[in-house]
Design a protein around this nucleic acid. Structure first.
Lengths: 351, 351
DNA sequence: CTGAAAGCGCTTACAG
DNA sequence: CTGAAAGCGCTTACAG
């Protein structure tokens, strides 16, 4: 009830100790739930804290103990639902560990990322989960080591000397390509977009290898724009011209959503006239009509995994670098259908 | 190049001062960019910082200066794209002010929100932007005042004694209803879902008033499920039974997306057989086919506004409570169409 | 413009 | 189990 003048004189641990007639050290032990304190004393101190309206001052504790119970999360993009789910997974685990997330957005710009990492360091975060911006070099990881700042890379990696939580993109691509090949497709395109980074490259490589393993031509890789409306407008790249394809694997579900709209505008029915496979399997895949066949990459689980890697490293700084590479999983829905090679024509949806 | 033993003996401001042959106070002034220091001295100190690899310790500064350059953001839900955009707006402004966001997710659970607010307070945040969880009482704001912790409510409000940044939901509803009424619709339903809070209530009230102002029956308010697949399965609530409607206003675009899928499954063509108006105008509205008519609520701008309100309050704590209520804006696309009253039948899309 | 000193609120050995 | 003391790294008056 001391709301008067709280600003001026905040209740301190010493006040609590005096009120409970114990020493400051004892009060500190109670707060940190040490077993060295008798139940009786503990109760007395807790009552005093309650009565005085004591608020623990993490700032002071962190200065002395050199830990902040704070971790930094650097994400290249806050609008893509994929990153949001990743973030949700991270937040859940960090929160459960009694820690707190400082979130920043690099906008996928390496120079900005520099600034932000410096700022995180000044704020004294205990560690960092980073999805490296495009163009990030491997020196970044070296610097973090020099800074003695525990780091886990997530989704993209720039160095092998550092923890990493991500997705087996090559395996995902293999599933997508095999699925379409088994439906009879031979002219399969790959629609990509966005900045170039390890996850981009792994998807490209995975697509090419999977196509070659099937004896198919892997060269039909087409870049589309970033904005959804522009992607839709680019749909005719796949259905007209010299490189007509009967199916397209998409870099992610954003591309799939855009192309799906574009095909609709062209009067082409997905899952009938043309097959489409997305990547990530965000919520929209199930909401689209026809429903989108997509390769699930489980962003929430990746986020949780990344957070656990970091927690482990904080506990054991000398652990060798670890990798958590999650296997994606194809969800077959309605947007992919049989292709009749016999006459090169279209057959009924078999999804 | 002092990477050896950095852990043990970190470079401190006193080291910098000595290295530059000035006092600690002077070094501190340089860091805080005070104009009281000569250019020459400043350069000397900056060179020393560079040479020694000095890292500013916010933790120590905050303890002494009683500010943390940190603000807490409490969001009920990280997966809804609407909140993500809101967050992006907040982050941009806070970042530009040289501050940093601590993000937590209340899951729309009031008790969890309590815990999180306490934790934020212990972490010493300078202020909080809160989208109150459902069931949050007005006492929460009183407590924050008692805690002397600056607060701005965003999107939902539980008290008028506190800054608020949000949307004029009633005006948005009026636009949606008027649009449909002008197209000839009379049996207009309102599809709602999710937890009950001020924004929910304002939308309900806004819908009812708008309908009454048009002389239409406002009682056709129907609750649908929260998950998108379940919303789709509930689409027949609007097209069968005693209360058939010809158009539906949706609580948000998630509902619109779900119902759109459900109508597709029922063989009903949006923008032709039935009209649909969404709310929020997230990116998906433009990506859907037919494109979704929706009331834009500009979440990024709201986030920016909320962050500015908080920054202003930090600068001037005694300001009277302020409200930033943004006017939403109807975007007419293809999902809403003329309705021919004459024979109660369907006419061609006029979107 | 600079120096010496006190203090923010906690934790950590170190004796008892 | 408890007390007295030092110190984490900064900022802030206060004299000069």
């Amino acid at each position: 009830m001391l709301s008067e003048g709280r600003k001026k004189s905040r209740v301190t641990l010493l006040d609590v100790a005096r009120h409970a007639s114990v020493s400051r050290a004892t009060a500190s032990l109670v707060i940190r739930k040490s077993p060295l304190v008798s139940t009786e004393t503990r109760a007395k101190v807790e009552a005093a804290m309650e009565e005085l309206g004591y608020v623990y001052n993490m700032g002071a504790a962190r200065l002395r103990a050199d830990r902040s119970l704070t971790i930094g999360v650097v994400i290249p993009n806050l609008v893509n639902p994929f990153f949001t789910e990743l973030l949700a997974g991270i937040e859940t685990v960090i929160d459960a560990a009694g820690m707190v997330v400082i979130l920043v957005n690099s906008g996928d710009i390496a120079t900005r990322q520099e600034t932000l990492l410096t700022r995180m360091r000044e704020h004294g975060v205990d560690g960092i989960i980073l999805c490296p911006a495009a163009e990030t070099g491997p020196l970044l990881v070296e610097r973090m080591v020099e800074w003695d700042l525990p780091l886990v890379q997530v989704l993209r990696r720039v160095s092998d000397d550092c923890d990493y939580a991500g997705v087996d993109y090559a395996y995902g691509m293999r599933q997508a390509v095999n699925h379409l090949a088994e439906l009879g497709h031979r002219d399969i395109a790959f629609a990509v977009h966005g900045p170039v980074h390890s996850a981009y490259q792994e998807r490209i490589d995975g697509f090419c290898e999977a196509m070659q393993a099937r004896g198919l031509d892997p060269d039909n890789i087409i870049r589309v724009p970033n904005q959804i409306a522009a992607i839709a407008a680019a749909a005719d790249l796949f259905t007209s011209g010299s490189r007509r394809s009967s199916a397209v694997v998409c870099f992610n579900d954003v591309v799939a959503l855009g192309l799906s709209a574009g095909f609709y505008d062209l009067g082409i029915t997905i899952g009938h006239d043309f097959s489409l496979v997305g990547f990530d399997d965000v919520a929209d895949a199930e909401a689209m009509r026809p429903r989108l066949t997509s390769v699930a990459t489980f962003p929430v689980a990746i986020g949780e995994g990344a957070a656990r890697l970091l927690l482990d490293r904080l506990a054991q700084p000398d652990l060798a670098p670890r990798k958590l590479v999650k296997a994606p999983q194809l969800h077959v829905r309605q947007s992919s259908a049989h292709w009749n090679k016999g006459d090169g024509g279209r057959v009924k949806n078999a999804g």
